[in-house]
Design a binder for these strands. Structure first.
Lengths: 134, 134
DNA sequence: TATAAACCTTACAGTAATGGGAAGGTCAAC
DNA sequence: GTTGACCTTCCCATTACTGTAAGGTTTATA
């Protein structure tokens, strides 16, 4: 199938699919007219990539996961470890965002938010700690 | 003061400070030898940038916040709105990450994680929905 | 048959917000 | 006087794409 159909079926933009080829994640064959030609195996790989990217794995992690997927001798522990590491990173990011949110929420709560010019948010950003922001 | 000291006092790398100048967020004067020379006002702006960046505002948001900060006639509501929008974005991101985490956790839980090759994580990525992943 | 639209191709540039490193000028200390 | 710690500009790399230009191919329609 052409790239357009591969895009539609995998849920990835054609542009992204070409990019994945450029960085050696996929190697479709070419039709006589020079068009890329995707087989079922290729489509499968694209779907794998779409799913793993959407789960937050980086391109390089996807590359590793794909190679593990290709390797019939892999140990499931290897895959599990990558996924666990990812969970840890996600947890860390969530904590960071929660902390940011708390700080911003305190600032917003303390800002009267009308047309007067005095603003605790700007005061805080400027280093005037008028409010306890956790 | 030189860029090194401005960096130390603001908590921003010198490289970043030069970048902020390049994109017109700050305009330090120059000493006779060509070195950048930061005054108290400049340092203040750098600290403002450091704080607002660390709170998750993008550079362009920082630019807006700085211009509001400079504007004696601003309405605090304008600032509040930007901060609120940021909170919404942060909340959305947190939800996304929680969802990712749940999915990955289910996959990890279902993977025996030993040296056998069968792996529910890879199966899921490959589109074989063997597990309910929310 | 002509032509227009809908595909496809490559190649180059841009994004956000820095980080790294080269090549070279300046300054303070010993 | 020379070493080492600064500073300068300039260009390239990062992540994972996205946009655009210039052009070739295929398909549908007038």
């Amino acid at each position: 199938m052409n790239i357009g159909q591969a895009a539609e079926r995998s849920g990835l933009p054609a542009k992204t699919i070409r990019y994945y080829e450029e960085i050696d994640l996929i190697h479709p064959s070419r039709a006589a007219n020079g068009y890329r030609d995707y087989g079922d195996q290729d489509l499968h790989r694209l779907c794998f990539l779409q799913r793993s990217r959407s789960l937050g794995f980086t391109i390089e992690e996807c590359r590793t996961l794909l190679s593990l997927y290709d390797d019939e001798q892999r140990a499931s522990a290897d895959v599990k470890q990558i996924a666990k590491m990812k969970i840890d990173l996600i947890e860390k990011k969530i904590k960071e965002l929660n902390s940011l949110k708390s700080t911003l929420s305190v600032l917003v709560k303390n800002c009267h938010g009308d047309d007067r010019p005095d603003c605790p948010i700007l005061d805080d950003l400027a280093g005037k700690r008028s409010v306890e922001t956790i």
